[in-house]
């Protein structure tokens, strides 16, 4: 009668549980989720590198320009020097304001009545454009940081679902049947967190950088506008 007592389903062979094996054995949906998360991580890191380097350069140029601006040299000369090259950051604000100033003095009778408001508007527009340029790409980091864990969780839920179906099919609740599927599924959540954690951290850092740089530029713009409007009032 010994054969009447069946000893469960055949035990799953203890295959290797390296990352590659886990990925290859996963369900197709889980695979797609994992690939998507890897691509998101790749894109996020590219943005992080690019933005970090770009912001450092921008701040260095802003400092250099401020040094130039306050060095006491004539604004006309500085304008001529800056307008020749592709300007960005503070230089762009300065060039826009100076261009407006120059254009107002081109006629026989300079239009000075509302020049200060016009310069202010031009500088605000330039600042907005510069800020937009700086913030471009950061939304990718933000959405990756918030959505990647959920995407990974979706892969995990799907993987666990299919592994439970496998349990039902094999009619055995042996842990050896359950474990590989759940290990594969959990890999998706791990990848989601792997993409989300640096994205969130660097989004916070870069967003605060953008805020600091924008504030610096706005301070310069206000100071420059004060100088220009004093000049205008003297000429009236």
């Amino acid at each position: 009668m010994g054969d009447a007592v069946t000893t469960g389903a055949a035990l799953a062979s203890p295959g290797d549980f390296s990352l590659l094996a886990l990925f290859l054995e996963a369900h197709i949906v889980v695979k797609l989720v994992m690939i998507g998360l890897l691509l998101a991580s790749f894109w996020c890191w590219a943005i992080i590198f690019y933005k970090t380097v770009a912001f450092r350069r921008l701040r260095a140029r802003i400092l250099a320009f401020e040094d130039d601006f306050w060095s006491g040299q004539s604004l006309e000369e500085l304008y001529r020097k800056q307008s020749e090259e592709q300007s960005d950051g503070l230089a762009a604000v300065f060039v826009a304001a100076m261009r407006e100033w120059k254009r107002s003095h081109e006629g026989e009778k300079p239009a000075l009545a509302s020049l200060a408001q016009r310069i202010d508007r031009v500088m605000t527009m330039t600042l907005a454009r510069e800020g937009e340029e700086m913030e471009r790409g950061l939304t990718v980091l933000a959405s990756t940081g918030s959505a990647a864990p959920f995407i990974g969780l979706f892969g995990t839920v799907w993987g666990i679902m299919s592994s439970f179906q496998a349990i039902a099919a094999s009619e055995s609740t042996n842990l050896a049947v359950v474990a590989p599927g759940i290990a594969e599924a959990l890999l998706a959540t791990a990848l989601g967190l792997l993409a989300a954690i640096p994205a969130t951290i660097f989004y916070n850092k870069l967003a605060s950088d953008v805020g600091r740089i924008t504030q610096q530029m706005e301070g310069f713009a206000d100071e420059f506008l004060a100088i220009l409007s004093r000049e205008i009032d003297e000429r009236l």
Partner: peptide, 29 residues
Amino acid sequence: MRAALIVSAVLHLAILAAAIFSLPAAETY
């Protein structure tokens, strides 16, 4: 931007390779 993409790709490949080849597989209890 291209440089950043390349750097990111290299970084990911390096980390993946390290994880696959050198990360120890779970030890059996």
